[in-house]
Amino acid sequence: MADNTINTKQDEIIEKFSMLDGDMEMMIGYLMELGEKLPEMPESLKTEDNIVKGCQSKVWLTADENAGKLHFQADSNTAITKGLVSLLVSILNNGRIDDILNADLYFVHKIGMNRFIGTQRSNGFLSMIKQIKMYALAYKTKLENEA
């Protein structure tokens, strides 16, 4: 049975952004709050290997698997980008591997991400999504090989 948790969380975010009514300062404030909520990432994980390629700012992202679900840890050297990665983690954390792989992240389009963070940051944001899906695919392959 499909797990709708990811979509429920996306819908909450769309709702939140619609309340901000396109006010750029409020959106940035909201993202920074989200970034502050992100659990601290151990310094030992902030390695070159864990950097998401394609982001202007530095973004570190790792994934661990437990009982078919993925747990993410992330950080960034800029507050707004930390908010962006936190947004993704809040939607996808503890999701089932297949749900993450198949997730249609429609919130990106719905909240008009491209318009408010600009093309370069949007590309960076898409790189984060790609990295998350790569982790999911890697774990799926690993589990299938172990089975």
């Binding site: 300062e25 800029t78 707004i80």
Partner: peptide, 12 residues
Amino acid sequence: HPYDAGMMLDAK
């Protein structure tokens, strides 16, 4: 970070 400042200034 300069990027944060730049974006927050742009918002203003």
